[in-house]
């Protein structure tokens, strides 16, 4: 089954960024930083590689996606809207009472969400099970999962990588959103990361570091990963927390924000500028 491809992945990323921001601005607070840093990756996955559509979303032969860093849910919801899984009006309901778009993705609430996540470390384990199940069922589809660099603090991530490596899950592709920040500060100050690529290689995976701000670089890395055989692939993405929104990038602590009036205005100005670039009037 061919994925209906988006022509301009960079533009698609800006669309995702725009609708991610709109959700936060509507709600007044949210996990801005880590949602914005995965936008380019989501754009390349949903715009080109991931074979998952509103039509085939329950077909076991489709590709599966797990957002293990569940707090980036709003970026996924923006993507799901742009790919036709959910209606535009839903985006205004983020975290509202009785919403179907909670902070952290819920497979029972939102069409297109393959796994419920939010407790860090658990999504990647589920992804190993999905990849294993697909292989047991003799399917050649892919399972993609995004984990955060802070999430790599969790021991369960390393259990999952060991399991994937031991079982030679070569249709599992892991992305590490290395935005170098976690809730309480720089990742390196909280738990020394060492060299992620070397770590994943020593765990028996293919691994490389690429520019997570460039849809082209991410695309090339996925193409590389798809050719790898016999081992899982881990792509470490150099990203920025708050990526693509200057006012948020500039903040030292942007994991979860409830911006004041002045900051909100600045965010909205950037949002409007984004809207103009993608041809949406705000």
């Amino acid at each position: 089954m061919a994925v209906h491809q988006v022509k301009d992945l960079s533009l698609f990323a800006q669309e995702i960024r725009y609708y991610t921001l709109k959700q936060f601005v509507t709600m007044g607070f949210g996990h801005y930083g880590g949602s914005l840093s995965v936008v380019e990756t989501l754009a390349v996955l949903y715009g080109k590689h991931l074979n998952s559509t509103p039509e085939n979303k329950t077909d076991p032969e489709r590709d599966y996606f797990v957002l293990s860093k569940g707090h980036a849910g709003p970026a996924l919801y923006a993507t799901l809207f742009l790919r036709g899984f959910i209606a535009k009006e839903w985006l205004q309901t983020l975290n509202q009472n009785n919403t179907r778009l909670p902070s952290h993705p819920d497979r029972n609430l939102t069409p297109g969400v393959d796994m419920t996540t939010g407790s860090l470390g658990q999504g990647i384990s589920a992804a190993t099970g999905i990849a294993l199940g697909n292989r047991l069922a003799r399917r050649d589809n892919w399972t993609y999962v995004i984990v955060g660099d802070g999430e790599l603090n969790e021991g369960q991530v390393w259990e999952a990588v060991q399991m994937a490596s031991h079982n030679k899950l070569d249709h599992l592709m892991v992305f590490v959103d290395d935005n170098k920040m976690q809730l309480d500060g720089p990742t390196k100050d909280i738990s020394e990361p060492h060299d992620y690529v070397e770590k994943f290689k020593s765990f028996g995976c293919y691994s490389k570091r690429v520019d997570g701000k460039s849809t082209e670089a991410i695309d090339q890395a996925i193409e590389w990963g798809k050719k790898n055989k016999g081992k899982p692939t881990v792509i470490v993405l150099d990203t920025i927390k708050g990526q693509g929104v200057h006012v948020i990038e500039a903040m030292s602590n942007n994991h979860h924000l409830r911006p004041d009036e002045e900051t909100t205005k600045k965010i909205m100005r950037e949002c409007e500028a984004l809207g103009e670039r993608i041809g949406v009037s705000t």
């Binding site: 796994m115 384990s125 589920a126 099970g129 369960q156 259990e159 999952a160």
Partner: peptide, 25 residues
């Protein structure tokens, strides 16, 4: 291959089981 011994990794065992259930097992 339907017998999976993940090793001494109980958290991963539960997570992988969840994933297997997602994949229809």
């Amino acid at each position: 291959d339907r017998y999976v011994n993940v090793g001494i990794m109980e958290a991963e065992m539960i997570g992988a089981a969840a994933g297997l259930a997602v994949a229809g097992f």
